[in-house]
Computed example of a mutant assay.
Amino acid sequence: MEYVNLDAQVGDLSGVLDASRYLKQLPSICRDLPPGARSFVTDTDHYDFRSRRCVKDLMLRAIRGAGGEEMEVEFQHNCWKHDQDLLIRYAGVSSFIIDPVDEDRGTDLGAVILDEILPCRDGCSHEIACWDGTLTIVCRDLQAIWTETVCSNKP
């Protein structure tokens, strides 16, 4: 990640998630993002850890169309925090990299820590950091769709 810090230091506490540098850069880079990516990343709930639409703690459920020009990445809610699942549709995919911490994990990357979307020549890059690896997609644009779900083990 270029701006999001996944290991910030706050006083004596290390390992703090800090998106503040990215959020400060966002106004200057968002005009260079494609419309769908811009809408998704500038949603005020996106980096609000208390929000039901924050990507933190979502679980990667499925990747469809890997290696093709059109891809879908589906994330499952965390019943303690979310009441919706997230589906991201990527159009004009020019690069797809999945980097698991352990090669035996495949696409099982664990819960989402945070993500970062940056403009690039091909449209945008979307890097999604999870506890057990990283998913990076470069595409022309993306569409994020939140869908209602039912939590069976909600407190």
Rank of each mutant, 00 (worst) to 15 (best):
M1P: 13
E2C: 08
Y3C: 10
N5H: 10
L6M: 08
D7S: 15
D7C: 11
A8Y: 00
D18N: 15
K24Y: 01
I29Y: 00
C30F: 01
R31Y: 02
P34D: 02
P34T: 02
P35N: 12
P35S: 15
G36C: 11
A37Y: 01
S39E: 15
D48N: 13
R53I: 00
R53L: 04
R53H: 14
V55I: 08
K56R: 13
M59G: 09
R61L: 10
A62L: 10
I63S: 08
G65R: 06
E69L: 03
M71H: 11
M71L: 15
E74S: 14
E74M: 12
F75D: 01
N78M: 10
C79N: 08
H82P: 06
D83C: 09
Q84K: 09
Q84T: 06
L87Y: 06
L87G: 11
R89F: 00
R89M: 00
A91F: 11
S94C: 15
P100V: 01
V101H: 06
V101A: 12
D102M: 07
E103I: 05
D104G: 11
G106W: 03
D108I: 00
L109M: 02
L109S: 03
I113M: 04
D115N: 10
E116W: 06
I117P: 12
I117A: 14
P119A: 05
E127G: 13
I128A: 13
I128E: 05
D132W: 13
T134K: 12
T134G: 10
I137H: 05
C139G: 01
R140W: 00
Q143V: 05
A144C: 10
T147G: 11
T149L: 03
T149P: 01
P155A: 09
